[in-house]
């Protein structure tokens, strides 16, 4: 196969975006002194999708994002953003990338309008493109008063300034790090609309968020990391299918002990069952059941003639908490050891 050389970096970006993943990270490792913040991480974000990037506090999400932006240099692994290595071509990448940081800091003496002017002017001077009409529409959609000075803005309003600048820029990729933590529910909805519009325009979004409902609504795929390591990644629908389902059943008090014993036997070491007494001589069992055991658990519950049975696929929150609990359980013995020293 013959590859024709692109005339300029912008064309290279366009070609790269059409031919491969917009973000392609393999075996990324980043150390700060002796502390390993990211350990052999893989991350792939397909073009034209919204990719959720999840993890508890301190998991390494922001560090990963800073490597993607070229703020941090990796210690090992391969990183490509829009087909380029951010360690050597960060300015080429950043021209076609919009970024909203978790803690938005802007120039306090400028007004919101002036800050937007600066962000647009610098992007244009770097060879990027910016849509003024889109900016006006976004200012209205986010109900932003751009005439106020930044120092008078709340956190949410500072985030709005950056979101307006990010969505108004004509970029291939949006990297959004906790972009809605300061927004009210109405503005969160507006943000969701903007993300959907961006994807409809062919752009790609990497969304780091703690608001799992938001990720569930917006994302096609998610990557969950913990302690700098990949925990799970893939299409959200597929992950839900593979994950444990939540089963709830209400049975009579007389059969409750038998049901508890049978559930324990069926689920074995994976047992995550809670038993909650209810009014009217009834007991409700809530269990998180691995996909391969759903059939068997439902059969034994039905045999107890329950008054109510519900089976729901795992939510993103269940997925996240499941990994978080496993991580915490794994860490506990080590904690105890260290603490005993």
């Amino acid at each position: 196969m013959t590859t024709l050389p692109a005339e300029n970096p912008r064309q290279q970006n366009a070609m790269a975006a059409q031919t491969r993943d917009v973000v392609d990270v393999a075996g990324l490792t980043k150390n700060f002194g002796r502390f390993r913040a990211i350990d052999d991480l893989d991350l792939r974000v397909a073009r034209g999708t919204v990719h959720g990037f999840l993890g508890p506090n301190g998991a390494g999400k922001t560090t990963t994002i800073r490597v993607l932006l070229g703020l941090y240099r990796r210690d090992a692994g391969r990183v490509r953003v829009l087909g380029h290595d951010p360690a050597t071509h960060s300015s080429v990448i950043d021209r076609d990338l919009s970024y909203v940081a978790g803690e938005v800091v802007l120039w306090p003496s400028l007004t919101g309008r002036q800050a937007l002017d600066v962000l647009a002017g610098l992007r244009r001077s770097a060879g990027g493109e910016y849509d003024d009409d889109r900016e006006r529409a976004l200012i209205e959609a986010f109900s932003l008063d751009p005439s106020k000075r930044i120092r008078k803005y709340s956190k949410g309003n500072r985030q709005k300034v950056m979101l307006v600048a990010a969505f108004a820029a004509r970029t291939e990729l949006l990297i959004l790090d906790e972009p809605t933590s300061g927004l009210d529910p109405l503005m969160e909805r507006t943000f969701g609309d903007c993300v959907r519009q961006a994807v409809a325009d062919g752009r790609t979004v990497l969304l780091s968020s703690h608001i799992l409902g938001e990720v569930e609504r917006l994302c096609d795929a998610v990557t969950i990391i913990k302690d700098g390591r990949l925990v799970e990644t893939g299409q959200l629908a597929q992950m839900r299918h593979l994950a444990a389902s939540a089963i709830s059943a209400v049975v009579s008090v007389d059969s409750a002990d038998r049901v508890a014993t049978e559930l324990g036997a069926a689920l074995g070491d994976n047992a995550s069952v809670s038993r909650n007494p209810m009014q009217g001589n009834a007991v409700r069992f809530d269990a998180s059941v691995p996909q391969e055991l759903v059939d068997r658990v439902l059969q034994l519950l039905l045999a107890a003639h329950p008054t109510d049975v519900r089976c729901t696929p795992a939510s993103l929150e269940d997925l996240f908490l499941q990994h978080y609990r496993i991580g915490a359980a794994d860490a506990r013995p080590a904690d105890t050891q260290s603490g005993g020293r």
């Binding site: 932006l69 960060s90 300015s91 950043d94 021209r95 076609d96 940081a101 962000l119 610098l122 060879g127």
Partner: peptide, 9 residues
Amino acid sequence: EDLLACGVR
């Protein structure tokens, strides 16, 4: 970070 995200070197 704001500046770099605009493509500034």
